[in-house]
Design a protein around this nucleic acid. Structure first.
Lengths: 199, 199
DNA sequence: TCCTGTTGCTAACGAGCGTTAGCATGTTTA
DNA sequence: TAAACATGCTAACGCTCGTTAGCAACAGGA
């Protein structure tokens, strides 16, 4: 057995982690409801019943994926709080932090954005309130930016939705091995948001 | 029996149309895979087996919803072709036409954007090629706008994705009876796209 | 009046679902 | 060496799935 975590490539992943990873991929590709435990078992080369030696339920997998992503987004926000110059700069930092989380976890992001509605209570409510919290942080930046005279006078909630939706979409096309780094993507997007398409 | 189509409110809808409408709502709320024919039958007050006097299969419902939306998007594009002034104006017209289709069909839009992957072949391929066609039209406007010196020099495909994603998101929050008209939404969004958030 | 179309039912089909029980094997830890 | 853990199996549970067969009631048009 290897010593725990030496290099990424040589880590022996626990079966549980392997299951979670394959589940993430499958949930992304086929959707949560359309992915069966037998599908999941098959890609791991075991029987469906064997999965239950490692996990509690199918939904537990979804919960792990969704709330782990939520944690990553909140963690990334710490970067935003360090920014003290302008609200434009703060918005840019928020976009960069956000896009970085997405591009570093494209499969989990897709599940996070598309499959959360299959969470049961009370997880669903918790998820929605976290999302609400996060969206509020973007609204706050926009509103303070308007008050400070930096931004156009726009409907802040409306603008938050437009901005986040273009950031959220990133997981659908971003290729981790492509020519664009997460920073490139985030910078291009925040440039579009702040300055628009026109010259 | 009423004469066919006199007023919206007094039209006697065929059972088939009623089924398609309820299916659209359910597919939107629960997702295609998680919606059962028994669910659908229940909201109509009939037995699941009775549905099959009117429709061929569950997937046929999804196909109808998806391709009817696709038709609406292509229809709406005719408006864009009439615009001859500037590429900014053309982009604005495209955004308006697009958002109008979405806001006038929020449930069907949600299904169109989220459930298309459950289409089987050859419908899936047809769907994807139509989407590709449509995206290409946005790319063309962006590229010609850049060539004409109207737009910043940006990656046109990247920009198309960012723009469409913020338009696509509209169905998630738009309230048909709210204070914003489809035109309002479209104008605000195209203003953001063209001019950005900054003053 | 007969025909055709619309609408709906009950009963049932084979298949797949998530999950549990109970057991076996090998590996690590004490 | 013994206990504990990790990993996997077969068999099966109760349930739901989409769908079909066959039949019945009623409407509108010829």
């Amino acid at each position: 057995m290897f010593i725990f975590v030496r290099m990424h490539s040589t880590v022996k992943k626990s079966r549980k982690v392997q299951i979670e990873e394959k589940a993430t991929t499958l949930f992304r590709e086929k959707g949560y409801a359309a992915t069966s435990m037998r599908d999941l078992a098959q890609v791991l080369g075991i029987e469906a019943a064997s999965l239950y030696s490692h996990i509690k339920s199918k939904e537990e997998l979804l919960q792990k994926i969704c709330f782990r992503m939520a944690d990553r987004f909140f963690d990334a926000w710490k970067e935003v709080e360090t920014e003290q110059n302008s609200y434009a700069a703060k918005m840019q930092k928020a976009a960069i932090a956000y896009v970085q989380v997405i591009t570093q976890n494209t499969d989990a992001s897709a599940v996070f954005f598309n499959e959360w509605r299959h969470l049961s209570e009370p997880h669903l409510s918790k998820f929605l309130s976290m999302r609400n919290d996060y969206e509020g942080r973007f609204i706050e930046i926009i509103e303070k930016g308007i008050a400070a005279g930096e931004f156009q006078q726009v409907d802040s909630k409306f603008m938050m939705l437009a901005i986040l939706s273009s950031l959220n979409w990133t997981h659908n096309w971003y290729k981790p091995n492509g020519k664009l780094s997460p920073e490139d993507v985030a910078n291009k997007l925040s440039n579009l948001i702040l300055n628009g398409l026109k010259k």
